[in-house]
């Protein structure tokens, strides 16, 4: 996984994939010292890990192991592809803490 992936790279240029579509979503971070919501265009053939790496840069989060993404009430698996989460224009991707300590 290349964590230095640039934000722009999300708009994949490869037209080869049939399934992939671009959707315009909102990303809201529930962690960090600032409440932030950003608009973002993502390609649905991206993996969750790729999206996380991008958001890590965008939101200034140090380590992708410190947060999960939640889409439509599902907490996303890093190995999964975005296409499996039925993302539509205007949907919200939440950046959430991995709060497993007791």
């Amino acid at each position: 996984m290349n964590e230095d992936r640039e934000f722009e790279e999300l708009d994949f240029d490869d037209e080869g994939t049939v399934e992939a579509k671009k959707v315009s979503v909102f990303v809201e971070s529930t962690i960090g010292p600032n409440q932030r919501k950003e608009k973002l265009v993502v390609s649905t053939d991206a993996s969750i890990a790729e999206i996380k790496a991008t958001l890590s840069n965008l939101f200034g989060l140090p380590d992708t192991r410190n947060f999960h993404l939640a889409i439509s009430g599902r907490i996303c698996d890093d190995d999964d592809l975005l296409v499996n989460y039925d993302l539509e224009d205007g949907d919200v991707i939440l950046v959430i803490p991995i709060s497993t300590a007791g």
């Binding site: 962690i31 959430i96 803490p97 709060s99 497993t100 300590a101 007791g102």
Partner: peptide, 9 residues
């Protein structure tokens, strides 16, 4: 319930 640093659920 769970916590991590300044967050929890």
């Amino acid at each position: 319930g769970g916590t991590t640093t300044y967050y929890g659920h």
